[in-house]
């Protein structure tokens, strides 16, 4: 028996909006520690890892570990039927072939339930080791989204370079080239507006902008984003989800021939 009650149901709606274009089908894994998902995009270039910790739910009952295969397009269709202020409860029986999403309006005067069929998904689960990254950049998520969107009008790839001077985003294409440099700044009145760079050694990696743009669909989940980079490793683009967890996107770099 599984019963997870999330008071801030809009978070789940935003999570689905953030990943449904990158991943079609995925297994949601439920254990006593939390509700999680790990999935790759169809070309296996990017990986998304979601964690919603059990203590972030108002009520969290998970009698035994459960993996529920869901089509994210269909799940998103159902969650779109929840109001932004609604409380969402996810319910499933052990060994059942469906999941129920229950939506309660804040004043409790409207209660809906939507039952969705589960599917068998044969997915690979990758082990992601804890890594000390060469450079970690924390910046406003809207700024990162703006840069990715702007640069993708010029080129297909971006070189992200972190040095003591700041973080530089560079692209080039048929019509020309562009560089955006963000320097470390400290905002006295609003930590969310800060750009903070922790660097052990300079790092420069090339990525497909198409994927980074897809990741920025998570911008509504957090005011800040963290980019963790090491030489010859996938970048980690992380959005914290309120007090409850995180969504991390891993993107393999492009290597020059």
């Amino acid at each position: 028996m599984l019963e997870l009650r999330l008071v801030q149901g809009s978070l789940l709606k935003k999570v689905l909006d953030a990943i449904k274009d990158l991943v079609t089908d995925a297994n949601f894994d439920c254990s006593e520690s939390g509700f999680s998902l790990q999935a790759m995009d169809s070309s296996h270039v990017a990986l998304v890892a979601l964690l919603l910790r059990s203590d972030g739910f108002e009520h969290y009952r998970c009698d035994r570990n459960l993996s529920m295969g869901m089509n994210l397009t269909n799940m998103s269709k159902m969650l779109k039927c929840a109001g932004n202020d609604d409380i969402i409860t996810i319910k499933a029986d052990d060994g059942g072939d469906s999941v129920t999403f229950m939506f309660e309006s804040p004043s409790q005067d409207k209660v809906s339930d939507f039952e969705m069929k589960l599917m068998d998904i044969d997915s690979e689960h990758l082990g992601i080791p804890e890594t000390e990254y060469h450079a970690i950049v924390k910046m406003p998520s809207a700024e990162f989204a703006r840069i990715c969107r702007d640069l993708s009008t010029i080129g297909d790839t971006v070189v992200i370079s972190v040095s003591k001077d700041g973080v530089k985003f560079s692209t080039s294409g048929d019509i020309g080239s562009a560089n955006v440099v963000c320097r470390q700044n400290n905002s006295v009145d609003n930590k969310d507006n800060e750009t903070v760079i922790e660097m052990n050694e300079p790092v420069s990696l090339t990525f497909a902008l198409r994927y980074l743009n897809s990741f920025t669909k998570a911008t509504t989940l957090s005011n800040t984003v963290t980019l963790s980079m090491s030489k010859e490793l996938p970048v980690v683009v992380e959005y914290k989800i309120a007090e409850i967890g995180h969504i991390r996107f891993y993107l393999a770099p492009k290597i020059e021939d």
Partner: peptide, 14 residues
């Protein structure tokens, strides 16, 4: 020219 790696080149299967 650049080559797009896959994520599976970096992480092993659990």
């Amino acid at each position: 020219a650049s080559f797009q790696n896959t994520i599976k080149m970096y992480f092993d299967e659990d």
